[in-house]
Design a binder for these strands. Structure first.
Length: 431
DNA sequence: ATAGTCATAAACATTC
DNA sequence: AGAATGTTTATGACTA
């Protein structure tokens, strides 16, 4: 049985449009200075850092940080491609920028990459500064990273286009403002499907990770938590949703102690009845139905099928908790920052590509600029409302994270975390 | 055996 | 006109 046919109309109908694209997370800030990251992330500035400083449960350190992918090596040209969900393991603070990863594609340049086309496209898009790429750029990225395709039968490009067109994970964004830089559209990853893709990536065989290191992320998170290295976690740029996922995984693997894995969704639901979990020492009883699979279901892989995706899409829409990253929470926030033009993100377009970001007449030096044009045109009142919404969401996330952390049985280390965080804050303020 | 996933190929339309 | 891009359909291999 082939791919589900007749998907395209659905895909078109569901194409969320500019706002969503604008909300694509600003991932891959690897190698960039924190200032640059902040500048590129106006959404982070929406949170009153001053008032939030003393907030124990504040998730700013998650908000401000970028997606986990950032530090898991998709983001730098200097780094090989590995699963964003794997990393080296060790009790020491991982050096995310280190080159201790194996390099699947370089390891065997002539062998076929262990990634499906969907994942290759996903990586290519996520690697771009604005999470949008024309198909030609996708070709280039894949070619650059996987020399296999240089000698592979030419049909792979067809497959890429086929995937883009058929796979609901990918959204086409018209270059509305005068067909900038060539023909064709830009392709983005639907944020709602990002968890699926992430999950799919995680499932990919990575000898370097699985053999000697295993799944680092939960271990890493665990070690961070156990060592009360809040700063480390903060610096690690793990976003809230990912942290939740890792927490769950850690719990599942027995790294952290908890009765059962807790989906963020549950945390959000419970917090409404219990209030801030930090103020409720009682353990929330979880239901089986609220398994981790609610938000991270290995079966809900990237695929052609509309059914599983639709299910997740619905779930995603039904609750903030299912968002794949905090960025998605803020997806309605117009991007005012200038991203990528100064190279502060550590990203540079591939040498062999012919798209000149700096020549973008839209002044955003990226593709997403057109996509977010709609949102940027909204008025001041809209901004106020959005800011308010952000604060509300932030509160929700804070409480949800509080619930999670509490339930994960790590509350005991919070005292240390607090002091560590406060120390860091004080140091920063002095600077 | 069946259904789902994925890769591949091909035809065709559209756009530049 | 030709190339690039995008859509759709079909088929086969593989897997759970």
């Amino acid at each position: 049985m082939g791919p589900v046919i007749g998907m395209t109309p659905d895909k078109r109908a569901e194409t969320p449009g500019a706002e969503k694209v604008a909300g694509l997370s600003q991932i891959y800030k690897m190698g960039s200075l924190p200032e640059a990251v902040d500048a590129a992330r106006p959404k982070a500035t929406l949170v009153d850092s001053e008032s939030a400083d003393d907030e124990l449960t504040n998730l700013n350190w998650l908000h401000e940080s970028t997606n986990l992918l950032t530090n898991f090596s998709l983001g730098s040209e200097d780094l090989p491609i590995v699963s964003p969900l794997y990393d080296i393991e060790g009790d020491d603070v991982p050096s995310f920028g280190s080159s201790c990863y194996q390099n699947p594609e370089k390891k065997s340049a002539t062998s076929k990459p262990p990634y499906s086309f969907s994942l290759l496209i996903y990586m290519a898009i996520e690697h771009s500064p604005n999470k949008c790429l024309p198909v030609k750029e996708i070709y280039s990225w894949i070619l650059n990273r996987f020399p296999y395709f240089a000698t592979a039968p030419t049909g792979w490009k067809n497959s890429v286009r086929h995937n883009l067109s058929l796979n609901k994970c990918f959204q086409k964004v018209e270059r509305s403002h005068g067909k900038v830089n060539g023909k064709g559209s830009l392709w983005c990853v639907d944020p709602e499907y990002k968890p699926n893709l992430m999950q799919a990536l995680k499932k990919q065989p990575f000898p370097s990770a699985s053999k000697s290191h295993g799944s680092l992320s939960p271990h890493y998170l665990s070690s961070v938590l156990k060592q009360n290295q809040l700063r480390t976690l903060k610096d690690s740029d793990i976003d809230a949703a990912t942290a939740m996922m890792l927490l769950n995984t850690s719990i599942k693997q027995g790294i952290l102690e908890c009765e059962k894995p807790l989906p963020l969704k549950t945390a959000l639901q419970k917090k409404r009845s219990y209030g801030n979990a930090f103020n409720h020492p009682s353990v929330v009883r979880l239901q089986e139905s609220d398994s981790l699979a609610t938000s991270i279901d290995p079966k809900e892989d990237h695929n052609y099928s509309a059914s599983s995706m639709a299910a997740q899409r619905c779930a995603s829409r039904s609750s903030v908790s299912s968002l794949s990253s905090v960025d998605e929470v803020y997806e309605f926030i117009p991007k005012s920052g200038h991203v990528g033009s100064d190279g502060s993100e550590g990203f540079h377009s591939e040498e062999d590509t012919d798209v000149d970001y700096e020549d973008d007449p839209l002044g955003d030096s990226g593709y997403a600029s057109q996509a977010c044009a709609d949102t940027s045109e909204k008025g001041q009142s809209g901004k106020k409302m959005r800011k308010q919404s952000c604060q509300e969401i932030d509160e929700e996330l804070k409480e949800a994270a509080g619930s999670l952390l509490h339930l994960a049985g790590i509350r005991t280390c919070l005292g240390s975390l607090i002091s560590t965080a406060k120390t860091q804050n004080q140091k920063q303020r002095r600077k």
